[in-house]
Design a protein around this nucleic acid. Structure first.
Lengths: 336, 336
DNA sequence: TTGTATGCGTTATCAG
DNA sequence: CTGATAACGCATACAA
């Protein structure tokens, strides 16, 4: 119950009848230091008996490395959590600890998180493009802490140790084409102006898709789900000649639209076809099943960690840029 | 770019022309040590100029406290993430850092996480009842690290510094009554045998609700969503005389059932009424809107942190037990 | 009010 | 192969 002080390396050394340096050596199994089989046994036995547990704080101070990595997220949304979980898992295998923070639209809170991480002397930072302004990032890197950015579209590429962007734009363009192929002649993007930078990529892709359809007679619409009249405006597009295609900001936005339309009596996919983004459980479980865009967070996590490790354990090297492709998952909501 | 070594307290002292002890004093603004206004200014100026940032690792080693708290989760499900985020936010205000881990049904991974946290000398642990076996918890507490348990139903109450359980059982009982009041004379629980301990609480509450209806002529059913035939079995309950009430393991399970039934042509809420648990966005956005049970994660987080802080900063005290009430949110899916 | 000295638990260097 | 010993950066009694 009381703060019973735990055994230290000194206790172990005493118990095993060896010196503290030796204990440290068997603890860290350093390959350039040969060890007697017998010593190892003695030390391990002492560790067991005393219930010794290495003090990571002291080790980190001595080593001048924290073996901690930080991650700054804009929110704890489904996709980010999965990404973070994946990164956590991978870096754990490599002996690192991941500290995750999110600062939902609170710049001031974000700075506090960052300061905390920096005070903890994290060895590196994974950072979403929305979670930190570019010049802050540049300053941190200049002071020696590598940063791997993800989903930082439009950032200057001289800042980070790496840049891992989802190719959302291409996926959205593909989605537009898919809607066209399924018979839509009116295609609408239902966005989210609050999440500006994220929204922009979807818009860019949407417009790119439209551009590829330049010679076709289609009507396009750009709506925003934070505008109270989005539903009314959406209804105006539904004329009856052709099905209307809707690409939502994410699965939830798309699902919201689908529910509202069903409630109003529209038939999906006959009158309206809908596509979401992120392929969350709701898109799979809804009726009708909702076409969505799979977000390969695992791939992205692997790429991000690879970059971080290259910087941490290898050469400084160039900051690589990687585009992660997404995949359209067709379901009932866009069938012909 | 290079690992430019950052300024230390020594540099600051030199620059300000004071001693290192003084710098430490102004840094920590200890109230039993008086300071000259002038010294404070000089030191702060030096800190600014040198871009000094305190090394938390060294401070923690010296203080013999890590100001880090750990959290062990069974998964990164929506509810847990929100709870964790809330705890993180609250403890941050109090100067603590929260490290969250999840070990989706991997006992071995869970042990590694725990070991890591212990090596980092966390000051305390928040732990879900599913994330650690009771005797492990007991051993840790005996060695001096306080544990606050949450959703650890059925745990012996002598272990932890505190126990914060959601009163899921009562909420489920209430849900059963709600279904009855809305006209259901057949009431079915659609569970999840994989999440045994969690499922059990729902079962207990469901059965308690049924018991209160002991004098009424009702048919009850217990199904499991992991049994491939759950949907067929559920259909058998739908005879047409009265609406059938379904309580799902969580929103997703309930939503899944609702979608499947809609697909088969059943009408909701006329023929089947459905209740989910957790009140996630999908329950609000679905059509028809799905009645759900609100999980007050913020309340629970506050209670958990309060207990932890009492143990950390105050007296050892008794391990309190708190039951957090949940709230039924009625929507279309259970209307008469 | 400020400075000095010691300790925190490890790692790493370098003689034995 | 093993054992002293000096960092690591800071906090804190205690002396001045």
């Amino acid at each position: 119950m009381k703060k019973k002080k735990s055994a230290t390396i000194v206790d172990v050394a005493k118990f095993a009848g060896v010196s503290i340096g030796t204990v440290s050596n068997v603890l860290n199994r350093r390959n350039d230091v040969p060890l007697a089989e017998d010593t190892i046994l003695k030390v391990n036995e002492a560790i067991r008996q005393l219930g010794y547990r290495r003090n990571a704080i002291a080790a980190h101070l001595s080593r001048q490395r924290s073996y901690e990595l930080g991650m700054l997220l804009p929110s704890y949304d489904d996709y980010f959590v999965k990404f973070a979980g994946e990164v956590e898992h991978i870096v754990l295998e490599k002996g690192y600890h991941l500290s995750v923070f999110s600062a939902p639209d609170k710049p001031e809170l974000g700075r506090r998180h960052l300061e905390l991480l920096l005070q903890r002397r994290v060895d590196g930072l994974f950072c979403h493009g929305l979670a930190m302004p570019p010049d802050t990032a540049r300053a941190i890197v200049k002071e020696g802490t590598p940063i791997v950015l993800f989903n930082a579209w439009g950032w200057p590429d001289d800042i980070a140790a790496g840049l891992v962007n989802l190719d959302v734009a291409s996926a959205c363009a593909e989605a537009v084409l898919h809607l066209y192929e399924q018979g839509c002649r009116t295609i609408v993007y239902l966005g989210n102006m609050i999440a500006a930078a994220t929204d922009e990529q979807r818009r860019i892709g949407f417009e790119e898709g439209i551009r590829r359809l330049a010679n076709e007679p289609i009507v396009i619409g750009m709506l925003d789900s934070h505008n109270p009249s989005w539903l009314k405006e959406l209804q105006r597009f539904i004329t009856g000649d052709h099905p209307v295609g809707v690409l939502g900001f994410n699965d939830l936005t798309a699902f919201h639209a689908m529910s509202k339309l069903l409630e109003l009596g529209y038939r999906i996919p006959e009158q309206v076809k809908i596509i979401g983004i992120n392929n969350t459980p709701v898109s799979r479980l809804s009726f009708p099943g909702m076409t969505s865009i799979q977000n390969p967070y695992k791939l992205q996590a692997e790429a991000a960690v690879r970059m971080m490790m290259a910087r941490l354990e290898g050469e400084p090297g160039e900051g690589a840029i990687v585009q992660i492709p997404l995949q359209l998952i067709p379901r009932k909501s866009t069938e012909r």
